[in-house]
């Protein structure tokens, strides 16, 4: 695993913290999972290429500062906006006819939502328990077919040279 040690800049973190309650289920605030989601995203981005990391940062800053130009925002950046205005700003990007704006909104939502839905608390809430299932059926597999499985696995390193087999076939 590549772990480049990527860390969100303070500003990027601030923007993501402001975005999380808009793009993730609104309960994220009451559940106190905003920072956990932003941290999980940071860990994920550590394995992305430098280009993806920089493109995300550029997108976040553009999203943050272009908000100042909106007549209804009184010069405030996205992370300074009250919730309803911040939500409307995100929606403007999400539905934008301009592909880069729309793609930024979609990709950032995608990453934050992925991070949120991978938190153990949320898996529990969804009644999603793959590890339990894996343990159960892995045991069933060995109970039912253990001997055959072991025999087949042992066969894997038995000699069976290609050219002799091909010769015999020809």
């Amino acid at each position: 695993m590549i772990d480049s040690g990527y860390k969100h800049s303070l500003l990027a973190r601030k923007i993501l913290v402001a975005m999380a309650p808009i793009v993730c289920p609104p309960e994220i605030e009451d559940q106190d999972l905003i920072h956990a989601s932003v941290d999980a995203l940071e860990a994920f981005m550590s394995s992305c290429t430098g280009q993806v990391q920089s493109a995300t940062a550029v997108g976040l800053y553009a999203f943050e500062f272009s908000s100042c130009l909106h007549p209804a925002h009184n010069g405030r950046t996205f992370s300074q906006l009250p919730h309803d205005k911040a939500q409307a700003w995100f929606e403007l990007w999400w539905h934008s006819p301009l592909v880069p704006m729309r793609e930024f909104a979609k990709k950032t939502k995608g990453l934050l939502a992925m991070a949120y839905y991978e938190l153990p608390e949320i898996a529990e809430q969804l009644d999603y328990h793959p590890e339990k299932w894996i343990r159960l059926v892995a045991r069933r597999r060995l109970d039912l077919y253990g001997d055959e499985i072991r025999a087949k696995e042992a066969e894997n390193t038995e000699a069976d040279p290609l050219m002799a087999a091909l010769e015999a076939h020809r």
Binding site: V23, C24, P25, P26, A113, M114, L126, Y128
Partner: peptide, 22 residues
């Protein structure tokens, strides 16, 4: 597909996403 990847690719956000994921 696991929930995290569904949530990532679903064309929803916020409340809409929560409803789909429920």
């Amino acid at each position: 597909i696991p929930p995290s990847i569904v949530a990532m690719t679903a064309p929803h956000y916020g409340r809409g996403l929560a409803d789909v994921m429920a």
